[in-house]
Every structure is written in C-alpha cells, then in structure tokens.
Amino acid sequence: MTSPLEQKKIKIAGPSVVTANRTWDGIVVYRTAAKSWSADLSEAAIVRNSDEAKALLAESVADDVGAIGPYIAPVQVGADGKIEPGNLREQIRRTGVTIGQSAQV
C-alpha cells in the first residue's frame, strides 16, 4: 500500500482539514492544531494551502496508533468561523447516516 503522501501531488482548492477514523473504535476524527485527534469538527486544524495540507497530513499519517486512513477533506468556513463539511460524503461522516436507523424503529 502506498501512503497517501506518495499518491499524488497534494493540491487543495479551499480550506481543508485532515480526517481519519480513530483506531480503537473507528469513529470519525479530525486532526487538531494541538497534534491530536478530535471527534468534533469545530476543533479541526484548518489548512489553506498545499504546503500546510501536506505538513498536516504527514504528521497525521505518522500517528498511526491514534487514527487510520487519514486524508485531506474540504470544508467551508463561515463568516463566524463555523466549520462545515465541504461535500456530501463528509457531511454524512459527520452527522451519520441519512436514513434513520433500524435500531430506532
């Protein structure tokens, strides 16, 4: 397996975060500026250019015990600084399935 760093040149089109799944339980997490992981998107470190993105990803990949499969994902940052996922996939990862779960019948 190639590491995400080698895959291709990292280019980002706008504000982005690094997201992954926490190793011990698999939940969605975001890389924070404090070099740790948080389940809360509002705590994610925001990167705005390719070099920053690359550095954040490199540091995330290195923390393989903390979380797995890190990658760069787009976000939207509102005027009030509120961070929202940048696409449907990330929206679903953040808020959960869109279908109502069977367990909640």
């Binding site: 397996m1 799944n21 190793t23 011990w24 339980d25 698999g26 939940i27 969605v28 393989d64 015990v65 797995i68 499969g69 996939r89 679903i92 990862r93 959960g96 399935v97």
Partner: peptide
C-alpha cells in the same frame, strides 16, 4: 498488538480483513 502500536495499520489490514473487518465511513 495493533492497539499498542506494535503493528502498523499496513501490517494489520490484511489480518483484519482475514477476519471480516473492514473500515467504513463511520466505523469498522
């Protein structure tokens, strides 16, 4: 060994797949 960091995800992936464990969007 995976949780202690002794095994990396690259090493562990094939082992977990042999036991039916995938990674999906929200969880394993």
């Amino acid at each position: 060994r995976r949780l202690s960091g002794e095994l990396t995800e690259d090493e562990f992936k094939i082992l977990r797949l042999q036991n039916g464990v995938y990674l999906q969007l929200h969880a394993y």
